[in-house]
Every structure is written in C-alpha cells, then in structure tokens.
Write a protein that binds this DNA or RNA. Structure first.
Lengths: 325, 325
DNA sequence: CTGAAAGCGCTAACAT
DNA sequence: ATGTTAGCGCTTTCAG
C-alpha cells in the first residue's frame, strides 16, 4: 500500500498525532515541527486517506449528484456548477446517471449514502414511496423539484415563461401555442403557470401535447402549430424547439417572418441553430452552485433550508420577430 | 450514525464476523443463519459502509473518471458507457471536470487516488511531467490518448477518416478540405493519418487550421473552404461542422448540392441539423465501457493492457452528396 | 460453521 | 506542544 501517517511520523521522528495535527489543525503544532513534518510528508508523497479520515470524522468531503440523463444537454451546465462549487469547498463529486428512472435514483442514493456527505438530486423522478425510502439516508438537496420538508433550489420557470409571453406580446402576437413536456413534470406545471400571463395580454393560447421532450416531438408539433394558426410557439425545451425549427424549414415556413419560436434552457446548441434560437435561460450552472451551497450549509448545521428562486432570463435571438400583418 | 454491523450482529444474536460473512462470503455460513442475518439486516436497513470495508480490503469499488470539459457534447456518451459498465460491475463512479487543464487533471487524480480503485482519463491533456507525477498513484486507463506503458483504449480515428474519404471519393469529389483541430491533439494527428487515404484516390486535400474546435471556428472556416474551391469538407468535429453548415446556409451555398460536409463524433445534434450531418461515429459509449473493462481486468490482475482499437463507422446523412458536374 | 481478536489509516480525547 | 490510546465499521486470520 501507499505511504501512511505512520511512515511520516517515523521518518519525522514524531508521533502520528503530531502529523495528523500538522495537517488538520496546524495552529496546534509548533511552527518548526510543522514545517519538518510537512517536508517529510511531501518527500514521501504522503496524502491522507480520506476514507480513514471519514470513518472517524463522519464527514467524507464528497458530495453526490444524480441526474436523470447525462446525454440530456440540459444537465451539463448544472453539473458544471455543482462541480465548480464543490471544488471551491474542497469536496469531490460522485456522479451517477439514473437513466430517467426513479427507482434507479433511489438505488443510487442508497449506494452513495455512506460515501458522501450529501447528494444533489437534479430533476428527480422519484415518487412519494421511493422518496420515503431514501429520505433520511443522507442529506438531500433537490434541484427543480420541490419535496415537502426538503431543501430545494428551484429555477424560476414561471417567471421565464412570463418573460417569453411578454416578449411575444410586444411583438404583436395574438395566437400562440405551447408545447407541453411530460405531464408528470414539475417543471412543466410551473411553466404553465407562467403561461397564464397570456390572458393579461388577451392572447389566445393553444396547448399542445404532452410530448416526450425530444427533437422528433418538436418536428411533429410544428405541423400542429401551423394547423392551429398560431404565429408563435413556445416549446417545453430547446431540443423540441430545434425540432420545430427543423420541420418549419422543411416545410418552407420562414422563421421568424411567418412563425416565431421560443425554446427553454439555453442549451449550447440554441445559439448554433439557423436561425439562432430565442430561449429562456433558467440559470442551470447557477442552480448547481446554489444547491451545493445549500448542502454545505446544512452539513455545517447552518440550515440552508429553502433557497430563493433563481432568476430566469430571456435570451432573445433570431427565431422571434414581429408578427406579420 | 447509521446502523452498523454491530447492531445487526446483536439483533441477530451472532458475532460480527458472521454478519460480515453472510454478505461477503455467503458460502461460509450455514443457510439458516445466513437467512436470519440477512432478514435482520434488511429490517434494520443495514448497508455495509464501503469506506470501512475499503480500508481493510484495499478496494473501494469506486472508479474515477476525468473529462476535460463536461459541456463538450462529445463526452456524455462516453460517460454513459463508463457509468453503465461500472454499474454492472457494482462500482460507483467519481466524476470530475478538469476544465481543459492538464495540471487540474493531475490534481484531481491525486485527490481521487485513495478513494477509487482506478481512474479513466478521457482525452487527457496532461503532458509528460504531469504524467510522471500521477503515474503510480492509482491505476489509470486512457481513452483517446496513448501513454507509453499505460493501458489505453483508442478509437479508430484514422479508420474513420479513411471511410469519410472513400465516401467522398465515391461521390466524385476531387478537391476536399480538412479543418484541423488543436495542433497538440493526439486525435487530430491520428485523423490526419487517415486523411492520407486521399492520395490513393488522387484527391487534392487542402489543410486548414489549426482551429479551436468550436462552432465559431466552423463558421470562419466555411469561407476559407469556399475560397479554396473545395467541393467537400471534413471537419475535426461535429460542432465545427455545424458551424460550417450554418455559415454555408447564410451564404446561400446549398448543402450537399454545392458543398458536402462531414463531421466527426456523431454528437446528438448531428442528426438534428438541417441538413442532417454526415459524420464519423467513433463509438464513444463503447470506448467508455471498454475502458472500465480494462480497469477491472487490471485490478483483478488479469492484465487488460492494450485493447484493440474500436471500430469507427461513417454515418451517412444528408450533408454529403455527389459532386456537381 | 462460528466467534474472538487484530488491525486498515486516521482523528480525538486524554495525558504529559 | 506533543505523545498515548481508543476506537470509526469492517474484514480476516486464527481458534474452537
């Protein structure tokens, strides 16, 4: 095995506790000895074993993250935020992909429980019974999902939608369509709330779906939107919006001249489509950071409980424009 | 703290060793006692603490993965492969994002070393001195990067390029352009080797770049390709190819009628562009699986050393077509 | 087949 | 300021 605290102690001519302290509580050891110990440790290539440390301190300095699907372009930025904040706090990250399966999420939480101080659940799919199984195993923080009594950081889905609606209203649109995501999605419910803003503008809203939020569904939806005689469409997410765009192009419908399209999430490719996609940036990276903050607070018994909603921002690009008169 | 092996032992009226054996070496304990122990453990919600176990066995049942950039759409599928294979082998995954920085990679390896049995390095950016620092800390398996004496799984970049070139040749193209990725990239060097296949067809190849492999670079490159009078272009990766496509559309150059475009990696969005992108699928998910296999072999002293190159497959979609006569 | 006891590498009282 | 010692939760000889 590798070099242990014993080896360092022996080589430095001190006791193991001194070596331990030289690292964990430097102020408790004389400047001189500390320097010597550190030097010896460095020379030997000593690194404290976090597992052994965790066994006694009860803290692992690891945090877990569970996402429903790694290939969903919505998550990478969130993960990046988690990762970055975790690093700043000297914590390592355990990542797992639950394959859109709530039961798998529960299994993963249980598997991680002992090796992490807490876990960040991104857009968890777990239902009540599953939740009951894992709650209490380890501190949890939810992103984009509220669970009674559990800390969660939620993005301002409704506010983002309102901005999108206001934007379209300002452009003169009177008939818009909304492409629903999965019916069970908390996020989708929130977005519908924001959609009610349309009433204030006297706009007519056609609800389509629910759809499996994929590119193909967007293509399919595009034809429905045209048939509904809407002049603008807001999609559940960017991937679907991109599908709409593709199908519209295929059918020769000019965007934004004949149809405005708004997506959601501001995934990387939203800026790369033709035309570039107007979209709602929910602040995924920020959410990741905040979730880790909350977790850290809880662990420090600082009680980071409920965090304020993050602010959403409409990113206006080339896929939305004034309605044709 | 949670329920420990002691609690189970007491509740089941056996010694801790029996409980331990009931889980780790079931054949060593009588059928009847095993069942009882298991039942009690289940009732109490006992889960062995992997850290404590690892301390004694020297195995953590965790594997680490380091990627240069989580937001790079090339990696998710690879991660998915790693994740899936790890799960099958009952290993958890430690993920870290090195932010395209070799030094950070080294730091991460050191930080992970004690908590994982081995780490998979995806497209590592580490140079020789950095490598020397981390080699030996923990078993490493490299993906898309060869390091003398280290196990690595490489994708068939050259073979993929050859397929692309043959495809273009078959379509009658005589003048093609290649958009280089970063000069230091091992991957790019391999692709250039495959590009030599063009000589056999008597094709003229214009090398452009090196480019930072981004969408914007693709847009920039598109103009250069047109100026070079090439009728087809192969980009270092899909993101660049998508940039090329966007700029070509902007300039009114019809794809594939006037220009054929080939990407590389088969990222999710390659199928969603207009026109859908012909691309080289290097088999990222497969690579992830194979890397974990190799790691597992090494850990079991089965010596999984060098793995055969994975096979690349050209995915022909709508962005390539016969040359205009 | 099962139990007792000795650690794995480390930290945290408790001494000195 | 430093050393001694007792575990953290688990596996693994070594005895029965």
């Amino acid at each position: 095995m590798a070099v242990t605290i014993q080896d360092v102690a022996k080589a430095a001519g001190v006791s193991v506790s001194t070596v331990s302290r030289a690292f964990s509580s430097p102020e408790m050891v004389k400047e001189e000895t500390r320097a010597r110990v550190r030097a010896v440790a460095e020379r030997l290539g000593y690194r404290p074993n976090p597992a052994a440390r965790g066994l006694i301190t009860g803290k692992t300095a690891n945090i877990g993250v569970i996402v429903p699907d790694l290939t969903n372009p919505f998550f990478p930025s969130m993960l990046k935020g988690v990762q970055a904040r975790a690093r700043e706090a000297d914590h390592a990250v355990f990542l797992a992909d639950a394959q859109e399966d709530g039961a798998e999420e529960a299994r993963l939480v249980a598997a991680m429980a002992k090796q992490v101080d807490g876990v960040v659940m991104c857009a968890s799919r777990m239902d009540k019974p599953l939740l009951d199984k894992v709650l209490g195993l380890v501190p949890l923080v939810f992103i984009n999902r509220t669970v009674p009594g559990q800390p969660s950081v939620t993005m301002d889905n409704a506010g983002g939608m309102r901005q999108a609606v206001d934007h379209l209203a300002a452009l003169g649109h009177r008939r818009i369509a909304y492409l629903n995501g999965p019916r069970s999605s908390w996020t989708n419910r929130e977005r519908r709330k924001g959609l009610r803003r349309a009433e204030r503008h006297g706009m007519q809203v056609t609800q389509l779906g629910p759809f499996v939020p994929r590119f193909e569904a967007g293509q399919q939806a595009a034809d429905l939107v045209i048939a509904a005689k809407a002049t603008a469409v807001i999609a559940y997410n960017d991937v679907m919006a991109l599908g709409v765009l593709a199908r519209l192009t295929e059918r020769g419908v000019a965007v934004p001249a004949e149809m405005s399209v708004v997506g959601c999430d501001d995934i990387g490719f939203a800026a790369m489509s033709t035309p570039a996609l107007t979209t709602i940036d929910l602040g995924g990276e920020r959410a990741g950071r905040v979730a880790v903050d909350a977790l850290l607070d809880i662990l420090a018994a600082r009680d980071g409980g409920r965090r304020p909603d993050l602010t959403a921002a409409l990113i206006v690009r080339a896929s939305t424009g004034p309605v044709q008169s």
